[in-house]
């Protein structure tokens, strides 16, 4: 199965940024163990990256793989919605 490739754009170390990072990591560890790649971009440290990717809202998660490219804005606290949007298979893998 194709690896999921994510870039998460956050703004500084705000509570909202931390929440988004934690939510995404938890999701990935639960549903995509070993099958994902995640880059975290702090736009306040790297505005050029934000400009290149045309980031307006933060946090913004860009799912680059699998196609189609999709953006999810928000701190991912709505996990069900996030999973659907990210094309993560809904079934919990047997552990």
């Amino acid at each position: 199965m194709e690896k999921h490739v994510f870039r998460l754009f956050v703004a500084g170390h705000s509570a909202r940024s931390d929440r988004a990072i934690a939510n995404l990591r938890a999701m990935c560890e639960t549903y995509l163990t070993g099958r994902y790649h995640l880059d975290i971009v702090d736009v306040s440290a790297d505005p050029a990256a934000a400009e290149a990717e045309k980031i307006v809202a933060t946090p913004t998660l860009v799912k680059e793989r699998p196609r189609p490219v999709r953006r999810i804005i928000g701190d991912l606290s709505d996990q069900q919605e996030a999973l659907r949007d990210l094309d993560v298979p809904p079934e919990v893998p047997d552990s």
Binding site: A11, P59, D85
Partner: peptide
């Protein structure tokens, strides 16, 4: 952008402000 965009949770427009101030 032509890219699909969804919302999951709360957000702000800090990204925009950062780009403008930069």
């Amino acid at each position: 952008e032509p890219t699909e965009q969804m919302t999951a949770g709360t957000f702000d427009l800090e990204g925009l402000l950062t780009r403008i101030t930069a």
